[in-house]
Design a protein around this nucleic acid. Structure first.
Lengths: 141, 141
DNA sequence: TCATTTTCGGATGCGCTTATCTTATTCAAA
DNA sequence: TTTGAATAAGATAAGCGCATCCGAAAATGA
């Protein structure tokens, strides 16, 4: 459903939402805590930085932090940036040119589900997830 | 969402559901009509044969045919066989051991969607899709 | 029996995502 | 100003799904 890259990115973002918003969080520390390869995590967070979801800072005491309040970041934004395929729009049968006017046989069955998934992703904020993590003791690793 | 392999398999099965049930359909003919590489389609249909969804016959006039009536084959069965990842059960964050008792932060949000997708796939038969193809002039290529 | 057709099944090569490595750049603190 | 810590960015390797190829086996018809 979601690529590894996206999953790692989501976990890291949830972790950041659950950390002190006023200071930069070291990527290497994060990679240890989340058990994600440091180099790979770096690449992923670079992409999120380039897309303005994170602010990075180099040098000692450097790291990354969220560019907005956790309440204002939806997991939809993260998925759109990290997922290479347009999962919220593509035809489930992969037929080129499939659209409402010229639908594939599964088109009508798939559309409502696709829209509902998108709605759910748009409506779920990092703050919401971080809160759950905090209150109910849920884990990221 | 679905792998290429699964998509090809689904298209081929819909094509078969829309063909004469009493005779074997040549894979090479099918591959031409569906514009799918013959060798690759062969591999995919072999898997479906091994899993009793198709019955194959070698030699001249050979080919494959559905092992059950199109009404009795759900696209769920096909996806389960061809998809390598357990898409109807796996955690959306890919966290090992994620389950109802020890959920990841997205667990509760994802579960109803996942179940609804599964329900839709279980409830959609090849006959239903073939009918649509026939009546509304929808296409597979 | 022999040639032809067709699926079966193993082996191989390709390409993209995933993952790693290396060098450059930036910043803080001594 | 120098040193060390940390991200940035490009190059490179590994793994897996995708795709192809080829010989073997089975069935048909002559």
């Amino acid at each position: 459903m979601l690529s590894n890259t996206t999953v790692y990115g989501l976990r890291a973002m949830i972790h950041l939402a659950n950390s002190d918003q006023d200071q930069y969080i070291s990527i290497s520390k994060m990679s240890e805590e989340l058990k994600i390869s440091f180099h790979f995590l770096t690449k992923i967070l670079q992409k999120l930085t380039q897309n303005k979801l994170l602010i990075s800072y180099r040098g000692p005491k450097g790291g990354v932090r969220l560019s907005k309040k956790p309440e204002d970041i939806s997991i939809y934004e993260i998925v759109i940036i990290l997922e290479t395929r347009p999962m919220f729009t593509e035809c489930i049968l992969g037929i080129p040119g499939c659209e409402d006017d010229a639908p594939c046989p599964l088109h009508e069955e798939w559309r409502p589900l696709r829209l509902q998934i998108e709605k759910q992703f748009r409506g779920t904020s990092l703050a919401h997830l971080a809160e759950k993590l905090e209150i109910f003791g849920k884990r990221l690793v």
